[in-house]
């Protein structure tokens, strides 16, 4: 790095200014640098701030008002939250969201990790398969929902036809049944997401040093022991990322359910996001919907923070 050239160009970045210029000059430079830096960020930040940060701030205000469709808002304190506590639909939505997450998160991790391990082998057709596995993820929700709805159709759907063919007398009613609607949704969302997480995990697997496996083999470790003692520990950073993403995505699940079941049958697949949508956009109770939105917001933030610290503690 040529130190003398920095003053000549006049736009010395801190890295370039090894020979410190006089104090006044330096603060002027720094101010100029700050201006240039901000000018880079500003175009994006204007949109980002206005469309993401400002709405989040308004949300926390709205949640404590009875804001309705006429835009009239009175401060009501925690009345909205008290109402949530006694609202049966909210309880259903809340527990359904957790139920969905409890099924979706482990299932997706298991399937995508299995796929990633499989695709990490030297097999023919692996490249084709990687493409195929990712394809559901980039297909639109509407196409996925419509196709799977018909695949799940109890009487003339291919899935139940296959189940009957292999000897299951009374296959489930899937989306028409209170008990099976949620598992059906989870199957579809897992099918859709596994390619995405598989690619993340595969990238993680490929950073595991080969020598570790060879060392383990020399020590007489079998395949399972190698998986537990070499693969899993090396995958931890990737796993952390995958779990956080998967949790947030599960908590906010919405559009797939909206198109597939619209929360039904009854309230069997009603989730938090849909509760917010219904109260806000269908019933125009903006204030009340916002209080439910605050719950969703806090749920995601808190879980992320917990996972973050847990990960940190374990890696020490």
């Amino acid at each position: 790095m040529t130190t003398t050239a920095a003053p000549e160009t006049g736009i010395a970045t801190p890295a370039a200014s090894a020979a410190p210029p006089p104090r006044r000059r330096r603060s002027a430079l720094r101010r100029r640098n700050a201006l240039i830096g901000w000018s880079f960020i500003l175009p994006n930040f204007l949109g980002f701030g206005f469309l993401t940060l400002v709405p989040v701030l308004i949300l926390f205000y709205m949640a404590f008002t009875n804001w309705n469709v006429f835009g009239k808002a009175d401060w009501v304190g925690i009345a909205n939250f008290q109402r949530l506590l006694g609202d049966g639909s909210f309880h259903t939505a809340f527990w359904n969201t957790l139920y969905y997450s409890a099924l979706h998160i482990p299932l997706t991790i298991a399937v995508s990790l299995g796929l990633a391990l499989l695709l990490n082998q030297k097999l023919r057709g692996v490249a084709f398969f990687r493409t195929a596995a990712f394809f559901p993820y980039i297909t639109s929700i509407v196409a996925i929902a419509v196709v799977w709805n018909l695949l799940f159709s109890p009487d003339y759907g291919p899935i139940n036809e296959v189940l009957r063919a292999i000897g299951i007398e009374n296959p489930p009613g899937w989306l028409t049944s209170q008990e099976w609607a949620m598992p059906a949704v989870v199957i579809v969302s897992t099918w859709r997401d596994m390619g995405y997480y598989m690619i993340l995990l595969l990238a993680g697997l490929q950073t595991v040093p080969r020598e570790l496996y060879e060392a383990a083999r020399v020590d007489g470790a079998n395949a399972w022991q190698r998986f537990v003692n070499v693969t899993l520990p090396c995958l931890r950073p990737t796993m952390f990322f995958v779990t956080v993403m998967l949790t947030i995505n599960s908590f906010k699940v919405f559009d797939l359910i909206l198109v597939m079941t619209d929360g039904g049958p009854g309230q069997a697949t009603l989730v938090l996001s849909q509760f917010i949508y219904r109260k806000g956009f269908e019933e125009s109770q903006f204030g009340y919907a916002s209080s439910a939105a605050v719950v969703l917001f806090l749920l995601c933030i808190v879980v992320t923070i917990i996972q973050f610290f847990w990960n940190k503690r374990r890696s020490v």
């Binding site: 709405p55 308004i58 949300l59 917010i276 949508y277 903006f286 919907a289 939105a293």
Partner: peptide, 20 residues
């Protein structure tokens, strides 16, 4: 702040954004 918004679901602030 940019990175932090990854953990914030759009569904939670879609209503104020819509009003805005």
């Amino acid at each position: 702040v940019y990175v932090g918004t990854i953990a914030v679901p759009w569904q939670s602030y879609m209503i104020p954004q819509f009003i805005l």
